[in-house]
Design a protein around this nucleic acid. Sequence first.
DNA 1: GTAAGGCACCTTACGTTGTAAGGCCGACAC
DNA 2: GTGTCGGCCTTACAACGTAAGGTGCCTTAC
Lengths: 232, 232
Amino acid sequence: MTAKTFREPLSRERVLAAAVSLVDSEGIKALTMRRLASELGVEAMSLYFYVAGKEELLDGVISTVLDEIVETSTQQTDWRAHLREQFLAARQVMLRHPWAPGLLTTRRTIPGGVYAYFDRIVGTLLRAGFSHHLAHRAIHAFGSMPFGFAQEVFSPAAAGGSLEPDDAEADLAAMAEALPNLTAMVAHEMHGATDPTLGWCDSQVEFEFTLDLLLDGLERYRAASTSDNIAG
Amino acid sequence: MTAKTFREPLSRERVLAAAVSLVDSEGIKALTMRRLASELGVEAMSLYFYVAGKEELLDGVISTVLDEIVETSTQQTDWRAHLREQFLAARQVMLRHPWAPGLLTTRRTIPGGVYAYFDRIVGTLLRAGFSHHLAHRAIHAFGSMPFGFAQEVFSPAAAGGSLEPDDAEADLAAMAEALPNLTAMVAHEMHGATDPTLGWCDSQVEFEFTLDLLLDGLERYRAASTSDNIAG
DNA sequence: GTAAGGCACCTTACGTTGTAAGGCCGACAC
DNA sequence: GTGTCGGCCTTACAACGTAAGGTGCCTTAC
């Protein structure tokens, strides 16, 4: 029978999916051609039939993750609610793949699908009455918000490392002296935390705060430009 | 004579400085232990006398760049003007080392000096009347602004790559069809550009726009909290 | 003087990586 | 049967980070 030796034929999709789940479970450093191949029950060089090389593999991995964002849809009609939901969904995707932001920022080519994704966002803005000019600025203002990782620049755990900040908290008293403002802030925040189990910093809340700060600020510009009829 | 064979002794500073200038001139991929060593007229293993390994070398490179930011000072007294100047200076540093943002986001340990840097920022906010809570939010809201690379998530040239977006502009007509909003936006922006030589997108202007959007939004919260006396 | 010790650097070697070059084999065409 | 070709494998190589240990020179002690 062929059943014994039968093997599901490879495909670009299978390779990329395997890569994503490998990185999810063992970190970005585990993603080597040999390792990925063995994960698929295949030799390393066989992968080159489906991806041009390691770089293209990484681009593909990113695109696969981005597709997860694009697939999310929203029923919201108000532009702010729409983008808010969109960006929060993006954040959820990135929380599922904490390594993705770091990988994305190191890509030297813009992975396919990014343009289409941004086109949709610009479309939302234009339909809401944004001028092209203000839409452009809005895209910049959002920064990495569309990808859901605006203020998580430092998230060592996400990159697969430990959370220990370089011996910084070895001597807490010394830290309080060297960093009076920071320690005071943390102390106040811990004390005032509504849910102590969340720790002193709920990054979901912070994400939404920043998001609303930007959306509200842009709304002010939009309202002003449409009433002045400066819209481009 | 010793003059002929004399060689300036190595030091951690010299190694890191050489690493920075090597990456500046040839990109992050050129930074290998062997290459860096040869740049210093030395063998690869000799570097291990000054840095524990490649990872620690990269941490050191980042810290060296961050030091450039910390060294900048400002005379501004208004909190907004102060932070604005601070962040704009950070941006200038990052423009000198376009590879730094990408490297920074991949670090798994928080390089030394980052805490001190943020402590100063928090101090500025507290002195301006920010509550600890709002100061905390402000830090999050700024995202990567303190490092000067908020909206430059995609800057392929910065990573040492080419600017070609993956064959995307191979067929401009097809692109216009697939990405109507984006192409319309670019078209409008190019037409309305005050200085055509800058291209359609002056990222310095965009950086300042976003910065002011955040600063103005936060100022509204600050003013409200101090007048309500919720501060603290 | 000379011997000891150690700093600063070098030599060699190993395992791992990405990938170029080419081989093998079953499926299908004629 | 013979050819063609898609799909996967074998072999090989250069470059990487770095462990282990060696070497030469300078300082210090006596």
